[in-house]
Simulated scan of single mutants.
Amino acid sequence: MNVDMLIEENNRKRELLTPENEKYYDDMLIYIRLQWRLSEQQSEEVLMEILDHLLQGQEEGKTAKDMFGHNPKAFADEIIEQLPNEKKREIIPFYARIIGNIVSWSLIIRGILHLILSQFIEVNSEINLFQMAMSFLAITCFVSFSIWFILRLVHNSLFKENRNIKLLTIKAGFVGAAGMAVVLLVAKFTPEIGPSYNLPWQVSLIAGAILWLILFVEKKR
């Protein structure tokens, strides 16, 4: 089975776990999946093997702690040490898709905003290449940092009995709001340097939609 099929099967089988076993396994699953350097295919295969073994033990009245010990993090670390790293040729397309998605959604959002605003005010459809590059750089940094920060929050909350979900949500929301403010400030105060070109909202919306569709089809392949 490929990665998508393994994840889908994993989601289905996890519903059969008891609440106690599900919490134990879910923490371990997230902890392993957050190790981006590891081979995704082999990580999902190992997670499926652990889940099948856990379900079998559950039928015999055993708990996850009975089978894998009272320290799931240590057990997960042992598994991680045995898993190979992801190949570079598979990592590069992953980051390329992230950048592509940022560009596509930026174009789509710009097109929608210009369409809405043009119904009420006159909108300047010209874009300055330098301003656009700086805004794109700011958005990329914001998205990258936000993803890293949220994953770090999740990582640090694993294997803890009492998690303060509300506090984690507040922290994530604060970082998101602060990052968006920085992006808006960069877009507002970056000077126009170099050439500017006309980019109507129709072109922006269509180009963004086509790029998103290409990335979506490529991901499904």
Rank of each mutant, 00 (worst) to 15 (best):
K87E: 10
D77N: 08
P19D: 11
R152F: 11
M5T: 12
A209Y: 02
Y197D: 02
K65C: 04
I50E: 03
R221E: 08
I139H: 01
K171N: 04
S39G: 12
L151W: 09
V175W: 11
Q202Y: 08
D52I: 10
I214S: 08
L6S: 03
R221T: 11
S204E: 06
E44A: 05
E218P: 00
N2M: 09
A64Q: 02
L205C: 02
I214W: 03
D26S: 14
Q56S: 15
N162Q: 14
L185R: 00
D26A: 13
G194M: 11
N11Q: 12
Q58Y: 02
W148S: 10
V154F: 01
A133R: 03
Q42G: 06
G179Y: 01
P93G: 07
N128V: 07
P195L: 12
I147P: 01
H53A: 15
K166C: 01
V143R: 02
K220C: 07
K188N: 12
E59W: 00
A64I: 05
E45L: 12
R89T: 10
S196E: 13
Q41Y: 14
R33Y: 00
R12E: 11
H70A: 14
S135D: 04
A207P: 04
W105V: 07
Y24D: 02
F174P: 00
G69T: 00
S43E: 04
I102V: 05
M180Y: 13
M28E: 02
T169P: 00
D26K: 11
F136H: 00
Q82T: 13
I80A: 08
T140C: 09
R163A: 12
S104H: 05
E81T: 10
E20P: 01
L83M: 08
D66M: 07
V217G: 11
W201F: 15
I150T: 15
S204M: 01
G176A: 06
Y95R: 06
S196P: 12
L129Y: 06
L17E: 08
L129I: 09
D66T: 07
F174C: 10
